[in-house]
């Protein structure tokens, strides 16, 4: 099914599978991921390191290195366009202009030999036919929008002269350059300290409202999710295990993995107690357990979990979780 262009649905990823073929068995980094981003919506993809969040983002932008990566199946539709069927040249026009990405590491994501004015200006010039002077004015406006003080003076600064937070602001300015419909932010605040992190989150929230963009926010930090998300997808071992509105996820999580993540979050009530941590570690993408991928670490595990890969169980209002045990027993429903 190819969704209509200009509908409310901006991005839909269907059964995406990305495998990595190295030496040895195939690593199924993304193993059947479905998610949707609607216009003007902030969607958070949450999960531990190595669960396939970044690979999914790179697949959307067509930036996966192939080989070693192989798109083993699935489809991605962006505003009615099937991204895997787009020729490379059209895909390139889409990148930056309609889908932009903000990377995790602001310290290395800017080219050290150019001024930030050059780099933001280039982001404008690549996709739009404007004069250098117009590009310069746009650059100043963009830098102002992202909260760089005195942008006229900072234009001629080199990246090494800026702090991490300022660099991330510049990266966001570059992503905003062509007013994209969707910004994919891949852990943009992970490398920043907490006060700067809060500033960047506020900035993203405000920009989303001002520019009417959708944001796909990739993070492992549930605190960040609580601050900005409209809709949350929890990923584990290359699959989405639970999805729902931010309220549903935080108030009545229905998957043991989500519950465990929430339990391992430090809160005021847990002060003085030993913080919960999920036993074990994320399975290697080439050696995933059969059945439910989370069962070896799950406190509600039943023998049936080792056999069949669970389907989604619907809890209404778009809240779904892949756990038959909790669905049948209703365990945890009252705890939260």
């Amino acid at each position: 099914m190819n969704p209509e262009p200009h509908s409310d649905l901006l991005l839909s990823v269907k059964n995406l599978k990305v495998h990595f073929q190295g030496v040895g068995p195939v690593a199924k980094a993304v193993n059947g991921v479905d998610f949707k981003v609607r216009r003007r919506q902030t969607v958070c993809i949450v999960g531990e390191s190595g669960c396939g969040k970044t690979v999914t983002a790179l697949a959307i932008l067509g930036l996966l290195k192939q080989p070693p990566a192989v798109i083993a199946g699935g489809e991605i539709f962006f505003d009615g366009l099937s991204l895997f069927d787009l020729p490379a040249s059209q895909m390139r026009n889409l990148r930056g202009k309609r889908i932009a990405m903000v990377f995790q590491e602001p310290m290395t994501s800017l080219n050290p030999v150019f001024t930030i004015g050059d780099q933001v200006g280039e982001a404008v010039l690549v996709h739009e036919e404007v004069s250098d002077d117009q590009a310069r004015r746009r650059t100043i406006q963009l830098l102002y929008d992202v909260g760089i003080v005195e942008p006229e003076k900072r234009l001629n600064d080199y990246p090494h002269q800026l702090s991490g937070g300022q660099r991330q602001r510049v990266m966001i300015a570059m992503a905003l350059a062509c007013e994209p419909d969707l910004i994919i932010a891949d852990e943009p605040t992970t490398a920043l300290d907490v006060t700067v992190q809060a500033q960047i989150l506020r900035l993203l929230k405000r920009l989303k409202q001002d520019k009417e963009m959708a944001i796909q926010y990739i993070t492992h930090d549930l605190g960040v999710v609580a601050a900005i998300a409209d809709h949350v997808y929890v990923m584990y071992a290359g699959v989405v295990v639970e999805q729902g509105s931010a309220d549903a996820i935080f108030s009545k999580a229905r998957h043991p993995y989500t519950m465990a993540l929430l339990d391992s979050l430090p809160t005021k009530e847990k002060r003085g107690q030993r913080l919960y941590s999920i036993p074990g570690s994320v399975p290697h993408p080439a050696y995933r357990p059969l059945g439910c991928p989370f069962h070896p670490r799950c406190r509600y595990c039943e023998p049936s979990c080792e056999k069949a890969f669970p389907d989604f169980f619907d809890y209404g209002k778009g809240h779904e979780a892949r756990c038959p045990v909790l669905y049948k027993s209703g365990v945890g429903e009252k705890d939260r």
């Binding site: 930036l63 930056g96 290395t108 994501s109 080219n111 690549v126 996709h127 990266m171 350059a177």
Partner: peptide
């Protein structure tokens, strides 16, 4: 920064 440049198209 090369990945970022590619992401900008």
């Amino acid at each position: 920064f090369v990945a970022a440049a590619r992401a900008l198209g």
